[in-house]
């Protein structure tokens, strides 16, 4: 008998945005944990999938000591704010999805949007936050 498997999403390749989509995985142990112990986070994996399907910005270099990794940014239409309660995703926020160098999702949530680019999280230009903007949607 096999356990649950990592869920495969297909998203823009930060290194070749015009090329074929790459696979980014949602680890089975992560979604199983959220399902069991953090149900609202589990529900908001829907927003993770939406952002990976429809990213607006991709940043690279998200950690000081763990090299690599990306931050995919987007805006889901709605999200869960508490058990059983779904509301429109706020205009003044973005949804960020953090992906490690093995292309596995490890963290996500809303962040305040930047005033100079509402598709970016606040402080996106700060060099101690991201190494840089890797890609931006033109649509």
């Amino acid at each position: 008998m096999t356990g649950p498997t990592n869920y495969k999403c297909h998203t823009v390749d930060p290194d070749n945005p015009m090329g074929p989509r790459i696979t980014v995985e949602i680890p089975a142990d992560l979604y199983t944990r959220f399902y069991k112990y953090n149900p609202v986070r589990y529900e908001n994996l829907r927003a993770v999938k939406h952002v990976l399907d429809n990213p607006r910005r991709i940043f690279w270099g998200v950690r000081k000591y763990n090299q690599g990794g990306w931050c995919y940014v987007g805006k889901p239409e709605e999200w869960y704010i508490k058990p059983g309660v779904v509301v429109p995703f706020p205009e003044n926020k973005v949804f960020t999805v953090y992906v490690n160098p093995l292309r596995r999702v490890y963290e996500y949530g809303a962040e305040p949007a930047a005033s100079d680019d509402p598709s970016c999280p606040i402080d996106w230009k700060s060099t101690d936050r991201y190494r840089g903007l890797k890609w931006k949607s033109t649509s």
């Binding site: 869960y80 508490k82 949530g109 402080d123």
Partner: peptide, 11 residues
């Protein structure tokens, strides 16, 4: 068990 708004403080 509520939706999270992340505030990055530092690295």
């Amino acid at each position: 068990d509520e939706a999270v708004v992340r505030e990055r403080v530092d690295e």
